[in-house]
């Protein structure tokens, strides 16, 4: 077997068009998940609350099922259910099947990322000693101010390595979007490969591409981490 380098170069150029889709899937999902997961982490920290139990159940459910399964379920179920709902209940004339499949990808990845980030935020918030919250309340700050000014700035520093991990995992799992006919990097590579059975070459090309993308993300987080941990860095000097 010989490696078809001409094909590889062509595929590389073709999959570049998929990068914006992959990035969009990653970052819009993160943007949507961030505030929701943070709110859910706060709920989960207050153990007595009923809402905390719901959050725990949700996180367990999402973490307990494979992403592939979630995609299969959602992609086959959601359009049918939505279609029924819009046509029969709301009596609207909207063709749900004409919807851009990337919407479903956003939904699946967000559901997943929310669960992951809830745990990331919860563990990060736990690393800041409860005493600091008490001290903030004791000097007259309200709970919102205490979180915004004391707890969260410290929790962010602890959360960053795990956030980096979550971002990279998410970016890699967006490759599953091809199952929902979204034309991301992986989808384009697979289509190209299918013409002449050049699967190995196509996969090699996108492997390199994913490594590059993930490395860039890592460097980005590294810079942010250095910036935010200023107060910790001083103490180690």
């Amino acid at each position: 077997m010989t490696i078809n380098t001409a094909f590889m170069i062509q595929t590389f150029l073709d999959v570049l068009a998929g990068i914006p889709v992959t990035l969009e899937l990653t970052f819009i999902t993160l943007l949507v998940s961030f505030p929701i997961a943070f709110f859910m982490a706060l709920q989960k920290l207050e153990k007595k609350k009923f809402s905390g139990k719901i959050v725990s159940g949700y996180v367990s459910f999402i973490r307990g099922t494979p992403v592939v399964l979630q995609i299969l379920f959602l992609y086959s179920l959601l359009p049918t259910i939505l279609n029924y709902f819009i046509k029969e209940v709301l009596n609207l004339d909207v063709d749900i099947f004409a919807l851009n499949p990337i919407i479903y990808a956003f939904v699946v990845f967000s559901l997943n990322t929310i669960a992951v980030l809830t745990e990331v935020f919860r563990s990060a918030l736990l690393t800041v000693e409860h005493g600091q919250l008490e001290a903030a309340l004791a000097i007259g700050l309200n709970k919102r101010q205490a979180y915004a000014r004391i707890i969260i700035p410290q929790a962010v520093v602890f959360a960053l390595p795990n956030l980096c991990n979550a971002t990279i995992n998410l970016m890699k799992s967006t490759s599953l979007a091809f199952m929902m006919t979204v034309k991301d990097i992986t989808a384009i590579a697979k289509v190209n490969a299918a013409y002449g059975y050049n699967y190995i070459e196509a996969y090699l090309v996108i492997s390199v591409l994913y490594i590059i993308l993930c490395t860039v993300v890592q460097f980005g987080y590294g810079a942010v981490e250095r910036y935010f941990s200023l107060y910790k860095r001083i103490s180690t000097n």
Binding site: G131, A135, A138, G140, I150, Q154
Partner: peptide, 20 residues
């Protein structure tokens, strides 16, 4: 909050704000 503003508390393990 009113009462908290009239009092001040010194903790056993200081509880200083580590980021300040």
């Amino acid at each position: 909050n009113k009462i908290r503003k009239k009092t001040a508390f010194v903790f056993q393990n200081y509880n200083l704000f580590a980021n300040k």
